[in-house]
Amino acid sequence: MEKRNLTCIRCPLGCSLVVTIDGDNIDVTGNTCKRGYDYGVKEVTNPTRVVTTTVPVSDGVDLRVSCKTSGDVPKDKMIDVIKDLTEVSINAPVAIGDVIKANVANTGIDIVATKNVSKKKSNLKATEVPKHEYKKAI
């Protein structure tokens, strides 16, 4: 029998969970809701996370677009997800929910945009350099 102390992260309450693993029997105590129970079980059997990062945008009003995995990925795949995005970029416009990379790191989960990035208007107005009455330094 194995006991693991976890902090539930399903909501800000942060309940202290004790998960008891006895073969196939898993028991969770310390939770105050069903979500906490599920979290406890999942965390010891198949821990998963949502991964968030950014990728470069071409031609957009922003340099980067934020993105996330459209669902949970296994905890031990998190860095693989990031690595699979090293060469990925996207053209503006981008809308929230747009798929940036399908089946990222073979997880079956997509990377989707979490921000709208519109296309850059031709040329951003160049701010004028103040002119001075000085002789140029040589």
């Binding site: 909501c11 968030t52 996330k68 979490t114 709208n116």
Partner: peptide, 25 residues
Amino acid sequence: LNQCIHNGFGLHTFKEELTGPEYAS
């Protein structure tokens, strides 16, 4: 919120986990 790209926003308001830019939008 635009630079808070991690998720965990909006559990109270929208009953789902959003990233900062999604919550803002």
